[in-house]
Design a protein around this nucleic acid. Structure first.
Lengths: 138, 138
DNA sequence: GTATTATTGAGAAACTTTCTCAATAAGAGG
DNA sequence: CCTCTTATTGAGAAAGTTTCTCAATAATAC
């Protein structure tokens, strides 16, 4: 089920802003902030209001079509959400981001933390930071 | 070396705002946002400007006396930084937060991700979310 | 004490995010 | 293909957050 079907399935409509944002995010490897998305699309000749960017991002994230990552500088960026549980590695230099499938690596740790703290753990957030192949050479 | 020494070691001064904020954060188990810190101290009868809160938080974090955590709602909160590498578990209900010592659990995963992505991993961010013992009962 | 100067407060300014509402356009049905 | 319904948008106001400026204050050294 692609993103358009997912939107229609909710009784919502495929509009130009939604198309523009999904297209932009689908072809970039760098997570983009709302402001960056706005200026980026305007540079390409497109036109959409900043309010629409925020509205659309929230919608697409609710539909699980996008996910947020914390950039190296602490800001938030949006990316298309790949299927299945996964995490991201981000380049501290260029922000380029790649995801990798989530697996059971954290299960043992989570169990230990539950025992240690008394909390009941339901989920987690994990991101790796480093240098991408391109930036390592420079 | 306590926080006052750490500040003096940099040639900086122990001021009232710095004392108030460190005291407040030392006695709370819930990570607080800048605005929350501001109103909280004013309620206690103290007085400090919001600008000072931001300035002081940045300073204390640079000195590694505070650390930031991402609350369940996506906002940022500040806590006193315990010594050594560690992570946090946050309660999705009351935000109460506890830390646990970092260990080598992620080393194997990081190595796998390096191989998979070609990135060179330097560090990571990890937080667990769930319910604290108090909230689980309610 | 006194001098030096780091630090603060208050308000302006920049920036980010949300809200409102009339105008527009997507999709359903004929 | 046209019309109707209503979800969606744009533009600007509004709310909220973070930074900046600079004169006044206060912490430390001597």
């Amino acid at each position: 089920m692609d993103w358009q079907e997912r939107i229609r399935a909710k009784g919502l409509r495929i509009s130009e802003p939604r198309r523009q944002i999904m297209t932009l995010l689908a072809e970039t490897t760098v997570p983009l902030s709302p402001a960056a998305i706005h200026t980026c699309i305007q540079k390409q000749g497109g036109s959409l209001s900043l309010a629409s960017v925020y509205r659309t991002l929230r919608l697409l994230e609710d539909l699980d079509l996008l996910c947020q990552v914390y950039l190296a500088d602490g800001n938030l960026g949006f990316m298309v959400h790949d299927s299945g549980h996964h995490h991201h590695v981000l380049c501290r230099c260029c922000n380029r981001s790649v995801d990798f499938p989530g697996n059971d690596d954290l299960l043992a740790l989570a169990a230990r933390v539950e025992e240690l703290t008394g909390y009941t753990i339901s989920d987690h957030m994990l991101q790796f930071y480093g240098l991408c192949p391109q930036c390592r050479q420079a």
